[in-house]
Structure formats: C-alpha cells, structure tokens
C-alpha cells in the first residue's frame, strides 16, 4: 500500500447521470475518519471531491445480483484476484465467481471435532478406569458404549466452538472499521444494491485500468474507496 500513498487518484465520472455518486457531497478527505496521513491531499482532478488519498480499491455498484455475479466472473477471468463482492444476502454463485474456493474453516472444525471427541472419550476413560473406578452391574471399567453419548456431545460442542471462533478469526472479526464503508452508497449493500471491489493490493492493480475495466462491466457506478 505504501506506493499508493504518493499518487493521487482520480475517478472520471460516468457522465450519463448527473446525480451519480462521485459528484455527491462527501466529507473532505482530511475529515474522513481513520484516514492515514497522506501527502497527496492536494486536488489534481478537474472536479473537486473526486480526488482522494490512498485507496483501498475501486468499487462498482450493481442493482441486481445476476449482474454482480456476471461482473465478478469477468473480473476473475480478466486476472484480478484480490476481489470481493458485497450483497444484502448470500448469493451462491458469487463465491465461485470471485474464485473463492476453499477456506481453512472446514479443517479447523474437523480438528475441533476430533479434539472434542478424543477429549471427551479420554476424560471418561480416565475417570472410570483410573480416577474413580466403580463397578456398575459387573460391567468393565472401560464401558465404551456408555461413553459414546458424552463423546458425541463433546465432539459437537468443540466442533461448533471451532466453527464460530474459526470463522471470526479467518474473517478478522470483530472489525470495527472497514474501508468499504467510506463509499457513500455502500449503506445500500444491506438493502438492495450489490457491490464489487477490486482491491488495491491486487498484483495486477493499475488504477486507471481498473476503473476502465469496471466501467466496461456496465455497473451503475464506479467509485474509489479510500483506506
């Protein structure tokens, strides 16, 4: 990100719509919260308010999910990898479209389950065989059938805990600040709009190209997203 800081970024307006987002009033860059101090506050754009500091990425806005999925698919095919989609509800195709195939979550859950299962069983084994052996109806101390229900429960418990905390960890949550919220229209991502972001840390990221590329996907809007 460091090399992004000294270059001011300009977004051309779409031109077809005067009410579009880049022309809408917004906080001056210096007032936006959590901004990194940047030397590039001076405005080089012909339009005030569209030149911004260091960028998180460029965001395209769509008004329906199939356009978002199609755009995400083309973005992935164009070779961009650090891309992300935002939608009010889960879209099954989207994660495939942005090339998000695997997470480490299943393996974390599996390990959690195995630890829970082994732990539960060994705990009972230790208690019944070593710690406090009781003769119950002449059955052996290691009465494994009786251990199964609790083994099952501890397996589920640890797998579920691993799932919840593993998910939070992999998503780096809780995260009180995220740059995408700097985009003025982004609040609609919880309502009826769909967003695609190409992040600035993508190896192929070249700002003007990215803007042009996103525009070629015929979104409603293309916006820079500040860090």
């Amino acid at each position: 990100m460091a090399d992004e800081k000294d270059k001011p970024r300009t977004v051309e307006e779409d031109g077809k719509d005067d009410t579009d987002i880049s022309a809408s009033p917004r906080l001056p860059a210096s007032m936006s919260p959590n901004r990194h101090a940047s030397p590039s506050l001076h405005q080089t754009s012909p339009r005030p308010g569209v030149t911004v500091g260091p960028l998180y990425g460029v965001m395209a806005e769509f008004d329906n999910p199939s356009n978002l999925v199609a755009a995400a698919r083309r973005t992935y095919e164009a070779g961009y990898r650090k891309i992300n989609g935002y939608s009010p509800y889960p879209i099954e195709e989207l994660w495939e479209a942005i090339g998000f195939h695997h997470t480490r979550l299943p393996i974390i859950v599996l390990v959690g389950g195995i630890i829970g299962g082994l732990g539960g069983f060994l705990m009972q084994y230790y208690l019944s065989v070593f710690d406090y052996p009781l003769n119950v109806g002449g059955k052996p101390f290691n009465s494994w059938p009786a251990f199964i229900p609790i083994t099952f429960e501890t397996t589920i418990l640890c797998a579920a805990l691993a799932a919840v905390f593993g998910m939070l960890a992999l998503n780096k949550l809780p995260q009180p600040y995220h740059p995408v919220f700097n985009a003025p229209n982004f609040k609609l991502a919880t309502r009826d709009h769909f967003f695609l972001v190409i992040e600035a840390n993508d190896p192929r990221y070249e700002h003007d190209e990215v803007v042009e590329f996103l525009k070629s996907l015929e979104p409603k809007e293309v916006t820079d997203v500040e860090v």
Partner: peptide, 9 residues
C-alpha cells in the same frame, strides 16, 4: 431463475 446463471458457467 438460478439455472441460467449456472449454464453460463
């Protein structure tokens, strides 16, 4: 409605 999106793929 979901089907064509897949067919494209």
């Amino acid at each position: 409605a979901q089907a064509p999106a897949h067919a494209e793929h």
